[in-house]
Each structure stands twice: as C-alpha cells, then as structure tokens.
Design a protein around this nucleic acid. Structure first.
Length: 795
DNA sequence: AGCACGCCGACT
DNA sequence: GTCGGCGTGCTC
C-alpha cells in the first residue's frame, strides 16, 4: 500500500506447497491488517529465519511462475523511492505494465435470512453483492456496516489479477503423409471439403491455424474442422497469442543509409564507449533535418550485432506511425512498442516479449524506460528536452535520470538527442559532464527554411481576420496554388491566463521576479505565483497607455472556421485534444495528411514534433506569444524550442520551405533567435538570465505543494512548512513563497506551494523525509502534501 | 486502505 | 450511565 507507515517490507510465512514456486521479484497475494483483507505485494527477500517477534501470516497466493522484477528492478525501485520522495511500492508498480497492478474488489456476503426488508432488497435473492463505494448510497453503506457488526453480513476481499495472456484455439495437424493418403482413399467421392483439407495438410505438415485462418485460406467452415477433429486429424488446443500493436502498420524493409561525416563521427563516438566498463552520457545536438534518427538506428544496429539490447525513448506526442515504421522497418520482429496508445493487454504482451528476450529493441514513451531488457547496450532519449519525460504523479521520476541509473548498472552509454537541448543538458555538456556531439549540417544540403516574423501590432486593425496576417494569407494562397501542403500551429499553452496589450505587445510582469503575472479571476487581480506579489488588473496598458489590453487565446475550432471561409476549396485537417481523443485518431489524421488527402494541417503544439512530410513547404505559427506569457521561468526556453521545432517541419525534402511566425513580441530574443535558428546564441543569453535570477541549471529546485478542499487548511500547512524549513536551510538557499498556485483551485481543491532554490543543502532532505512521513496524518483531513524534485512545470 | 481503540459530547 | 462520532496508531 502506498503509505509512509507501510513503506517497509513485511514478513510472511510460506506454505510448503508454495516454496518451490515462490521467488524474489514475484507478485503475491497476502492477508493484511485486522480484517485480513487480501492485497497484492512483491517478494523482495526470502529467508529461513526471521527476527520478527510475532505471529506470521501466510502468503495466500503466488501470482506468477517467473519473477516480474529482477535484481536490477528492485535496486532501481529502492533508489527511485529515495530520489523522488515516493513509496517503494509505488515505484515497483510504476515499473510494470498496468495490467499487473491488481484490481481490488469487495463483496458483501449474506450470512442469515434474518435481515431487514431493505437488506433483502439489496441482495435481491442473491447471497452476495459487489460492494462498490461509488455506486452504493452512503445511507446503504451505513446499514451494511451495521449489519456486519451484527454478524448478518460479512465483507469479502478479492484480488483480481488482470495480467492474462490472450488465449486462442488453434487446430494442429496430427497426420503424417502416409496417413493422409490412407484417409484420403477412405473418403467418399463427394467429401470435397475434407479432401481439400487433407491436400492442404499434406503440403503444410505441422501447421497450426485458427478456425478463422482455415476459413480464409481454404474456405472451410467450423463444421468441417469439428469433423476433422473427431476423426483425429486435427488437434484442438489452446495457445497463447500476443496482442500485436503493429498489425495495422505497413512495414516494409529499409537498409541503413549512407552517413554524412558528422553522422559517422557521432555513431563512432558512441560505439567507442559502448564496450567500456563505465557509462558515458552523450548529448547529440543536431539541427532539424541533420539525421539524428539515422544515427540512432545505426548505433542500435551495432549494439544488436554485439548481442545486446537497445532502448529508445521518444516523446509520446511524436510516437507517430512514421517514427514507429522507421524503426520497425529496420529491425522488424525485434522491436517492441510501449506507449499509451496501446491497450493494457497489448502493453502487457509487449512487456512479456521483452522480458522473455524475444524483442531486443524497445521504442516507447516515458515509462518504457523500465522495459525489462537484460543486456542493455544503449539507451537513447530523443527530443531529450521534452518535459513529458518527467512523470507528474507519484513517483515523480525523470526518465533521463532513470536512464542514467540503468546505464550505470549495465555499463552502457546514454545518448540524449535534440535540436534544442534543455538548458540543463546543454550546460552539462559545456562542463564536460556529458560528451557533446553536434551536427550542424542538414542531410539533403537544404538550407534551413526562411523564417519570417510578422509583427501583429502593425497589421491593419480593421481587418476582419484577427488571426491571420496579410503575409500569412498570401503564403497560404501561394502554397495552395502550387498544390503543396501547409502546417499551421496555434499555440495554446498558457491559454488566457495572462494579459497582453494588443497595441504594443506588453505583458505585465512581476517587479520582483521578472516573470509574467497570472490573471486570477476569483480575486480580480494579477498575481505572481513565485513570490506572491499581487496587483490590480490594469485598465490601460502601463507601457503605451493603450486600452486594448485583454486576455490572450483563441481556439483551433474558431480558426478552422475562419480559415475555411477564406479558402473555401482547401481541405483542412484539425488536430487538437478534441479531435484526437479517440484511440488511433492521432494516427488516422497524420496518415491522411501524409497521403496528401488534405492541404492544411491545423493543430496545437502536438503537430510541432517529428512530422516529416516532403510536400509541406509552409509552416505558419499563428501566435508565438502565448508561451512567453507562461508564468514560468522556462517560458523563453519553451517558446524557442517550440518555434525551432515547428520551423523544422518545412522543406524537409527537396522543396524549399518557408516559415511565418506571427507575434506581438517580434523583438523578444526567444523569437528572434528562433528565426535565426541560433541555438548557441539562445543558450548563452538564456544562461545569463538564469544566472541572474538564480534559476536552474545554476540552482536546484524543490517544489512543495499542499492542497485541500479547504483553502485555509492548505495555506496554513504551507506557512507552517515555511516556518520549519528555514531551520534546515543555510542562508545560501532561497525560498519562494508560499503562494497560491496559478490555477488556485482544481477539482475543488486549493493549492499552495513553496519553492526552494538551493545548491547544497544536506539537511533539506532530512526535512523532506520528515514532511513525507508526517503527511500521512494530514491526508485524513483531506490535506495532501506533494514533494516535487526539479519540477518542470510550476503550475 | 481499513480496522480497533480511546476520548469526548449528547442522548435515553 | 451509554451510544456513536472522530482522531490516532498499526498492519508481518
């Protein structure tokens, strides 16, 4: 159970009949607590003797035949729990596919007929009912609990193991060639179907097929198969089948491409470290189109050739069919896929294929970092700057850190790739902590696309089209005329939470923190959620005295309507959270666009990554500013990365690309440097700003959040922590807050937070462990405490 | 998460 | 006096 008091191992007795089966790393069902309710646990140690002075309970059941956690996973879980202030059991569960997390169910069992009419009605002639707190009224729950005290009913606890292999019926031939001939001669002349079956079995001895496959191949129906089974020709047996997430992919075969000299240098540098007894982390910084993926693929190929396995992480958002196809077309059956688009059964099966060593290349999103590969030869993290690599619930791990831990364990290199590395990683490369590899030449020798910045403040104000500038409209028109494709991105991050002047682009900032103020409609004020500064909502722009100051944000749907009106014949595809909610919708939209069944792809930031379509020659960013308005010190970094990424979508093949960025802040360095595609200059500029503000990577950060349905409770707790934490900190550390979070209320809970910026604070961790331990008591009052090490989002 | 124990106020 | 609510400790 994920609580602090139970975050330790418990000892159980193992019955004789289970001793052979039981092993370290297996899941077991054990009775726990006074009521002996059954729960799922993990075996972490087995020993003959115990020093526990009490009655031991017995393990109730063993859930598997082979361990699901090995020595590495157990050590990793231990490390992760300490590192991220989480519970060990949460870490172990996070490492396994969700199908292996047991489902608990409660049932109420009727013990006697002597009960009230109301209870009789509840049981409705049955002896037991499922006890679901969500479905049963509180009133009824009370009555049931009362009936239990009077021994009229009892509560039964069940553990449901969802981790099941998919079973299918297969028919297998039992016949030898001689018997086939013999049987054939015995058949009646009109037994056409049976004769057909025999001929087929003769040419395909030992074959095992499902009924459906027989039907499809030789047109046999169920009746014929049953007859054949009766005659003893076929053996019907259950067989395990993997659920294959790749069944709808069109996968060809590709061969390694010729490398440019920069690519070859990168591949060789990584491979040179691959055989050493230590682990090196590389930062591969390559401009968009420089062929990072091919570097990954060739490194993987070499690693496989050496008999080792490869793990490659890709952001969820860019696990496009395109990406998957590139890898599977090179490594075929050896590839296993792990991402949120798969059903839990599919994930479970892919996990088992990896665990059994049937797949040696794993491609997946964040949690794939735990893939149970045994002899890792390389771990690759593509788009390493992506914030989705950090999990934002318990355990709050960063896949990059887990990668480094595992690489250390396996003595293999880590390869971090990006066109726009996170400042943290780039700074480490600078300091020599990471080996820095860079590729500044594009594969096809195409120059980077021309980027045009449109100053939206100068657009004709009477124009009806508030979302499109003249330049962008002209660009779209010309591109459509050439029958080429267009990607339009609407930046939705930080949607309408900040205010900006439409006349001059001024964004209201905090006088203390130099960070945009957040609009709080509940208090009708502008707040800084770093330091708590608060001021009135301005009526006129403090900079230009203009009155066109307003919230920022437009929806994709609205833009689509406007766009369709302007270009009535253009085929538009919209891609945002609304249109991609359904499973596979993401893939369908991209396939459609890839096959040029649409002219314009309109979407949110999810279209910025990894798409590679040769016919796209125009990329338009409708509003580059919203990210800058984010109340986060990483706002500039994120804006720069996003604009650079999306610009890279234009002119990938032989055609020249063009990028148009609309903004109210044309002179902001993040936008100017994205136009130049000058990462290095951006890095230096941003680093000096971080240095001045004492932000990462110069300082470490820890975020502590208290939340409660009662605002005063959360606030009080946070101030109490604030008062205490100072005793544990040196005067080198900086505390920001406590402040209410930018979105102060979510799901009727109020959030208060505090951020500590520090360099070296040993005592801090002692205190954080203490908070974690004590948070348990508060939880019952509805007060939750969350500790987030190196948070990436401060909202 | 869920059970028991113990303390407290409100009731027959 | 006693019933029942709730805060707290503990679960091998």
């Amino acid at each position: 159970m994920p609580t602090m008091q139970t975050d330790k191992p418990f000892t159980y007795k193992v019955d004789e009949h289970l001793t052979d089966q039981l092993g370290v790393g297996m899941r077991v069902v054990v009775p726990f607590g006074k009521g002996n309710r059954l729960i799922q646990g993990f075996v972490t140690r087995i020993f003959e003797q115990t020093d526990y002075q009490g009655e031991l309970k017995k393990v109730a059941a063993v859930l598997e035949l082979a361990p699901v956690l090995n020595d590495e996973s157990l050590q990793l879980a231990e490390w992760m729990a300490r590192e991220t202030f989480s519970f060990r059991i949460s870490c172990m569960q996070a490492m396994l596919p969700s199908a292996m997390r047991a489902q608990y169910q409660k049932k109420v069992v009727l013990l006697t007929d002597q009960v009230s009419e109301e209870l009789k009605a509840f049981f409705a002639d049955k002896s037991e009912q499922i006890f679901d707190e969500q479905k049963i009224s509180t009133n009824m729950q009370g009555k049931l609990l009362k009936a239990r005290r009077q021994k009229q009913v009892e509560i039964k606890y069940l553990v449901k193991n969802k981790a099941r292999a998919k079973k299918i019926m297969m028919f297998q031939s039992k016949l030898t060639e001689e018997i086939i001939e013999e049987e054939k001669s015995k058949l009646r002349v009109n037994a056409n179907k049976l004769r057909k079956l025999l001929s087929f079995l003769r040419t395909h001895p030992k074959i095992a097929l499902t009924q459906a496959q027989f039907e499809k191949k030789i047109g046999l129906t169920a009746g014929v198969l049953r007859a054949a089974e009766k005659k003893g020709w076929l053996l019907r047996q259950e067989s395990e089948q993997y659920r294959d997430p790749r069944k709808n992919l069109m996968v060809g075969q590709t061969i390694p491409k010729n490398l440019t000299s920069q690519q070859r240098e990168a591949v060789e540098a990584v491979l040179a470290e691959a055989t050493k007894k230590h682990s090196t982390t590389f930062l591969l910084q390559g401009v968009t189109g420089s062929g990072k993926t091919e570097v990954y693929l060739q490194v993987i190929a070499k690693v496989l050739a050496a008999g080792k396995a490869a793990l490659m992480l890709v952001p969820e958002i860019s696990l496009t069919p395109q990406m998957v196809e590139r890898v599977t077309s090179r490594f075929g059956e050896k590839v296993a896929l792990l991402h949120s688009g798969l059903s839990s059964g599919e994930k479970f099966d892919e996990w088992r294929r990896i665990e059994k060593g049937e797949a040696q290349v794993v491609v997946g999103a964040r949690s794939a970092i735990f893939a149970p590969l045994k002899k890792l030869g390389i771990i690759i993290i593509d788009e390493e700057h992506e914030t989705s690599y950090k999990q934002d619930n318990m355990p709050r791990y960063h896949a990059r850190d887990v990668a480094k831990w595992r690489a250390e364990y396996h003595h293999c290199p880590v390869l971090l790739g990006s066109a726009t590395p996170s400042l943290e990683s780039r700074a480490r490369a600078q300091k020599g902590v990471y080996r820095w590899l860079h590729m500044d030449a594009r594969i096809n020798q195409q120059p980077l696309p021309k980027v045009k910045i449109v100053d939206m403040r100068e657009e004709v104000p009477q124009s009806k089209n508030i979302n499109f500038s003249e330049a962008l409209l002209r660009g779209i028109k010309q591109t459509l005329e050439r029958h080429e494709q267009i990607i339009l991105m609407l930046n939705r991050r930080g949607y309408s939470s900040f205010m900006m002047c439409r006349d001059c682009g001024f964004v209201l900032k905090c006088p203390n923190c130099d960070i945009s103020l957040t609009l709080h409609m509940d208090t009708h004020s502008m707040k800084c959620h770093y330091c708590g500064h608060e001021e009135a909502i301005p009526q006129v722009c403090p900079s230009c005295k203009g009155r066109h100051i307003r919230y920022y944000g437009t929806g994709t749907q609205q833009v689509e309507v406007e766009l369709q009106k302007l270009f009535s014949t253009a085929r538009i595809l919209r891609m945002d959270v609304d249109t991609t909610r359904r499973k596979g919708a993401h893939t369908r939209i991209l396939n459609k666009f890839g096959q040029h069944e649409a002219d314009i792809l309109l979407g949110t930031q999810m279209i910025a990554k990894g798409l590679d379509y040769p016919d796209v020659t125009l990329v338009g960013v409708l509003n580059a500013d919203t990210a800058l308005g984010m109340t986060d010190f990483r706002a500039s970094e994120k804006t720069f990365q996003l604009l650079t990424q999306v610009s890279g979508r234009a002119g990938r093949a032989t055609k020249k690309g063009q990028v148009i960025i609309q903004t109210y802040n044309p002179h902001h360095y993040a936008i100017q440097l994205a136009k130049e595609q000058n990462y290095e200059k951006f890095f230096r500029k941003e680093m000096s700003i971080r240095h001045q503000g004492a932000y990462p990577p110069y300082y470490y950060t820890i975020q502590i959040v208290a939340s409660s349905p009662e605002e005063s409770l959360a606030a009080k707790k946070m101030y109490q922590i604030y008062a205490e934490i100072r005793k544990y900190l040196s005067n080198q550390a900086v505390i920001l807050g406590p402040t209410p979070q930018a979105v102060a209320r979510i799901n009727n809970r109020y959030f208060y937070q505090l951020i500590v910026k520090y360099k070296k604070e040993k005592q801090l961790f002692v205190y954080l462990d203490k908070i974690l331990y004590e948070s348990q008591k508060d939880e019952r009052k509805g007060l939750k405490i969350m500790i987030n090490r190196e948070p990436l989002n401060f909202v």
